[in-house]
Write a protein that binds this DNA or RNA. Structure first.
Length: 575
RNA sequence: CGGGGUGUGGCGCAGUUGGUAGCGCACCUGUUUUGGGAACAGGGGGUCGGAGGUUCGAGCCCUCUCACCCCGACCA
């Protein structure tokens, strides 16, 4: 590629809306440009990197036996109504009507479409197992898109779906994809971790997330210091009941005036208690019903866990309006005499007397005991308490025979694998005929990778003060030949000669033959993240050399300008 | 959706008590430069997000609207 006729859209300054390193660098390097909130153009260099990731994914998918298809971006409502998700999927699903007033949506994921596809085409057990994938745009109308293409509304995803005759074989397919994912992220040169996760909106029983470790990650991962357990905070189990040091002489419940103190910290300070002796009462709306949850003051509620425990689809904190209607005093809510179902986290159990809101403006109760509260039973068991909080640093690892301690790290979720079971094949009534002549539901799995997010994660993980340090496999070009003489002269001729030589041998190479000064070319090459520079100018010509600069090591070598063969060998050594 | 903020040339910004819009970078032309984002000279590009209003006069004041950004269970 001749950069003189290419589009190198580098910027000295980053736009003010770019927050993270990767977002700023991708914009400055001329890889992406925003055209609406969460919607981006990929410019030439950005697209080259994007394609490299895509190709690695495609190669590994094919190698694992998955078959590529392409499903539509626009999908009809009836498929979603069939699975029941038309009503369950919230505002993230962008819906619209066509000219004949028929309902459609932009596909945020493709379980419905693929289940329908396979159901029509693979009616026999002889067609299974089958893993189908596509690399295709998705649209999710996120509440808050951010960090450039890291969390965009329109984004490209590789999504694969496996179909098996039974659970055992479905697990085999799952493992197969899991291993393919390892190969993919290894080849992309990422430092990552596969962690246990929640299967979220997609449903199912078992799943892993692939997390790229980075400080700017939006997820929190807890990993054990002595075994290989790692999980997303949302799901990391923490159902141990830790005894607390506490005096046994219980005093009776007292109301205390706490003027304008609505936060745990304020109340704790005022009452002279530690925040783990305060219990906060969170009021939520769960499928239209109000419920309360008791969480220790120093803990956070995991909506994911609560959702699972309650078995509801819709769960969110009750709005002020709803609270007012229910006569609940915001900021001073408590479990005593509260007339809605109450659930409690395990950590409340050992508390002998604690402080809570008094359901009365500017008052809290102290010396509250859970024994006197009407805590809900869950399911058929009398499980008064359940695991509802997020795990924190220092929690004990709950893997069997492990006494390790959990520590947290931030991560960027670049891939997610789920075992779906028969959730969709049942709801959509998708069946195949088995060997015994009976109709059965497919056992499914689904597997996603955010392509743009992998690119952003790679930038986030590989950069320095000069710009992006792309791993060889992802760099937009692996080599750039730079003529440091902006005029048409001997240096440019030599540069072209070397460029042609390497290009003809099939190297991924560009020549910077723009009429720019040397500094500009060096800066651009480094910002964009090209690993190897071959520099030719009047100075080096006079010395009879070509300079070779390695972006990653910073090493500069002088190579014989007439021995292209040796230059090539040097490159091969490093590639 | 709630709260906050910002919209001025491609990007980053300034713009006084309301008086007819400016700077840096980028871009174009020329000359001089020529190894780490060159210098000088000249030049082009703006209905100041949009609509309405107040005023002799609005980038600035008022109303509405749109877009973008930030924060948001943890206060229950």
């Amino acid at each position: 590629m001749k950069l003189s006729s290419y589009l190198i859209a580098t910027l000295k300054e980053a736009p003010s809306d770019a927050e993270t390193n990767s977002h700023q660098l991708m914009v400055r390097a001329g890889m992406i440009r925003k055209i609406a909130a969460g919607v981006y153009n990929f410019l030439p260099t950005g697209l080259r990197v994007f394609r490299k990731v895509e190709n690695i994914i495609r190669e590994e998918m094919n190698r694992a036996g998955a078959i590529e298809v392409m499903m539509p971006f626009v999908t009809p409502a009836d498929l979603w109504q069939k699975s029941g998700r038309w009503d369950v999927y919230g505002k993230e699903l962008l819906r619209f009507k066509d000219r004949a007033d028929r309902d459609f949506c932009l596909g945020p994921t493709h379980e419905e479409v693929v289940t329908d596809l396979v159901e029509r085409e693979a009616k026999s057990y002889k067609n299974l197992p089958l893993t189908i994938y596509q690399i295709q745009p998705k649209f999710r109308d996120e509440i808050r898109p951010r960090y450039g293409v890291m969390r965009a509304r329109e984004f490209t995803m590789k999504d694969a779906y496996s179909f098996d005759v039974n659970e055992e074989l479905a697990e085999k397919s799952y493992l197969n994809m899991f291993n393919a994912y390892r190969n993919i992220f290894d080849r992309c040169g990422l430092t990552y971790k596969a962690v246990q996760a929640d299967s979220g909106n997609i449903g199912g029983s078992f799943s892993h997330e692939f997390m790229v470790l980075a400080e700017t990650g939006e997820d929190l991962v807890l990993s054990c210091d002595s075994c290989d357990f790692a999980a997303n905070v949302e799901t990391a189990p923490c159902n141990q009941v830790e005894p607390l040091e506490q005096s046994e002489n219980l005093e009776s419940l007292v109301e205390v005036e706490t003027p304008n103190m609505t936060s745990v910290d304020e109340v704790a300070k005022f009452l002279g208690l530690k925040s783990d002796r305060i219990v906060k009462t969170l009021v939520l709306e769960a499928d239209g019903q109000l419920i309360a949850v008791l969480i220790r003051g120093d803990h956070e509620l995991s909506l994911t866990k609560l959702k699972k425990v309650l078995g509801v689809n819709f769960l969110e904190l009750a709005s002020e309006k709803v609270l007012k209607e229910a006569n609940i005093v915001k900021g001073f809510c408590g479990p005593v005499d509260l007339n809605i179902p109450i659930y409690a986290d395990y950590s409340i159990k050992p508390l002998k007397g604690f402080a809570t809101g008094a359901n009365k403006l500017n008052f809290h109760n102290i010396n509250v005991c859970w024994e006197s509260l009407n805590i809900q039973e869950i399911g058929s068991e009398k499980a008064m308490f359940s695991d509802l909080r997020e795990a924190v640093d220092g929690d004990r690892c709950l893997s069997s025979d492990c006494s390790g301690i959990l520590t947290s790290t931030r991560g960027i979720e670049v891939g997610h694998v789920f075992k779906l079971g028969t959730k969709y094949s049942e709801s959509m009534n998708a069946t195949f005929t088995d060997q015994d002549g009976k109709e059965k539901n497919y056992f499914m799995g689904c597997y996603g990778i955010g392509v743009g997010r992998v690119v952003a994660a790679a930038v986030e993980q590989n950069n320095d003060e000069n710009g992006i340090r792309f791993p060889l496999a992802l760099a937009p070009f692996q080599i750039v030949v730079i003529s440091t003489d902006k005029k048409e002269g001997e240096a440019l001729l030599k540069a072209r000669e070397l460029y042609d030589y390497l290009l003809n041998l099939g190297y991924d190479i560009a020549i910077d033959d723009r009429a720019e000064s040397p500094g500009v070319k060096f800066k651009d090459a480094e910002l964009i993240g090209i690993p190897f520079q071959l520099r030719i100018g009047p100075k080096s010509l006079a010395k009879g050399v070509i300079e070779f600069k390695d972006r990653l090591s910073g090493e500069v070598l002088e190579l014989d300008q007439n021995n292209f063969e040796a230059i090539r060998e040097k490159i091969d050594e490093l590639l």
